[in-house]
Design a protein around this nucleic acid. Sequence first.
DNA 1: TTGCGTGCAAACAGTTTGCATGTAT
DNA 2: ATACATGCAAACTGTTTGCACGCAA
Lengths: 135, 135
Amino acid sequence: MESTDLRKAGLKVTHPRMRILAILEGLDGKHVTAEDIYRQLLNSDDDIGLATVYRVLTQFEAAGLVLKHNFEGGQAVYELDRGDHHDHMIDVESGKVIEFTSPEIERLQKEVAAKHGYQIQDHSLVLYVRTLKKK
Amino acid sequence: MESTDLRKAGLKVTHPRMRILAILEGLDGKHVTAEDIYRQLLNSDDDIGLATVYRVLTQFEAAGLVLKHNFEGGQAVYELDRGDHHDHMIDVESGKVIEFTSPEIERLQKEVAAKHGYQIQDHSLVLYVRTLKKK
DNA sequence: TTGCGTGCAAACAGTTTGCATGTAT
DNA sequence: ATACATGCAAACTGTTTGCACGCAA
């Protein structure tokens, strides 16, 4: 049950937080902006302010419930953190976001960092792609 | 000579553009924000507006003279494009930016994209790292 | 001389914050 | 009862734009 997730995160179980969490769970894998969520809430007649959406998303991120990405272009996007790490590929023509994983790339990243005397704390890999056509 | 680069880019050779290009060339590899450049100009008594700095950087980017990166946190950073492609590692403790290249990672990226029916147009790889300490 | 470039201030977008009120525990 | 949450509007940050003037070609 969702309210458990909230309590575990040390957050009071409030209407806005439940609704926002529900919306995030209903996305299965898609990414949304704060405003996307805000609009969805308006549509379902929930009277929740945009500021609250931002505050809740920030708390969820801090609690490890959601991931925030800063792809190109102003708006940040959010997705539920299902624990399965993945990177992103963005179709520059359609804006579609494809998730992928590559253990080999991960391994090489660690290797490169180590070569410079560092350990990786986090990383961001985004491929901007277009559909493959032979000319 | 720098004015040649500007002309080649189809840009009139003006004082602001020359000064900004000179500053970028003087960085050797460091990254700067628009405001960094603006402040440097003020220090050298150049009366160039921040808006102009942004406009010039945008033009330089379009002309392929500079690269713009959106690392975490509001500000975009710029660097001269020396043609040598590289990725970035950011020391989260010091803020230091380290450049690196990994042909293997590049190859794997292409491979992953192809597997999904795409070709890469651009990509962004940033490792957020901390210095390696055994505990 | 003429069209591109510039400075300035105002506009803008996304996000954050202060404050008075509301509510989960 | 009390500390934490919320809605609203105002503030803020980084960046862009409109406009009258200025300058490279």
